[in-house]
């Protein structure tokens, strides 16, 4: 990414210097297959000889424990939740993503702040406020938006790990069952993502297809991005 571009003021107190790595973000709904694709991409890129670092929401060393605990209780109010997630994101950006980019790694980020912002806005946050909160965020080299419709998500989750309280937005859609809540909440999120796709220039990938087809699309986009960085090609021995 060479020179850092921020969405706002960035980190005025530090000079980032040369960022020789690439920041690749996978965005999209719960159950759309982001983690599967992240794993496939990681293996592929490492095979090609690239150093890869991955990260995802709530993995900050600083906030992980406290945030998990807060999610268990009932006292995590809307603004508090937004800011707690923003802290997690900032910590990972400054202490994990940026150092990796400085060291020339390809960083695969399973979600970025767009997901957090979408959830905040669906929960009633002022969009202007939310955008400005993330003024410190680095602009990724590419954002791959895995898009599927809500019925696809439901069938995947029901046959997979099941529906959960937060993914169904039960805190804001107190319907009497998880299914209806999930449909309402995830549909609103998809609308937000579609809007962000325009605003932030996401590359939209149809995720309603078999895993390997989606993967091959993602590979194509990433290959274009890495054009100047040739993979190591070696004969089998």
């Amino acid at each position: 990414m060479e020179n850092a571009i921020y969405y706002g003021a960035g980190f005025p107190y530090r000079e980032l210097g040369d960022l020789s790595g690439k920041l690749i973000v996978l965005e999209g709904s719960d159950g759309v297959g982001r983690s599967t694709q992240t794993q496939l991409l990681r293996r592929w890129l490492e095979d090609e000889g690239f150093a890869v670092s991955d990260t995802g929401l709530r993995r900050s060393k600083m906030t992980q424990k406290g945030l998990e605990k807060a999610r268990m209780g009932h006292t995590l109010s809307r603004i508090t939740m937004s800011l707690f997630y923003a802290t997690d994101f900032a910590d990972r950006l400054e202490n994990r993503i940026i150092p990796a980019l400085q060291a020339g790694f390809i960083v695969l980020s399973d979600r970025y702040f767009y997901s957090i912002m979408a959830r905040d806005i669906v929960r009633g946050a002022d969009p202007g406020w939310a955008h400005q909160v993330y003024g410190f965020a680095l602009k990724p080299d590419i954002v791959l938006y895995l898009k599927a419709d809500v019925t696809d998500l439901v069938s995947r989750l029901i046959l997979g790990r099941g529906l959960n309280y937060w993914e169904a937005g039960m805190d804001i859609h107190p319907s009497n069952n998880l299914y209806d809540s999930f449909i309402d909440y995830q549909s609103e999120l998809i609308m937000m993502f579609d809007q962000f796709a325009q605003e932030y220039g996401f590359v939209t990938v149809d995720a309603g297809r078999p895993v390997m087809e989606v993967f091959s699309d993602l590979q194509g986009h990433i290959r274009n991005l890495l054009e100047d960085q040739q993979p190591i090609i070696e004969e089998n021995f």
């Binding site: 980190f11 800011l83 923003a86 802290t87 900032a90 910590d91 400054e94 410190f136």
Partner: peptide, 15 residues
């Protein structure tokens, strides 16, 4: 960092 310090204290205030 200055940013996470600021964000976490604001989280505290928001609560």
């Amino acid at each position: 960092t200055p940013t996470t310090f600021s964000l976490l204290q604001c989280t505290d205030f928001a609560d």
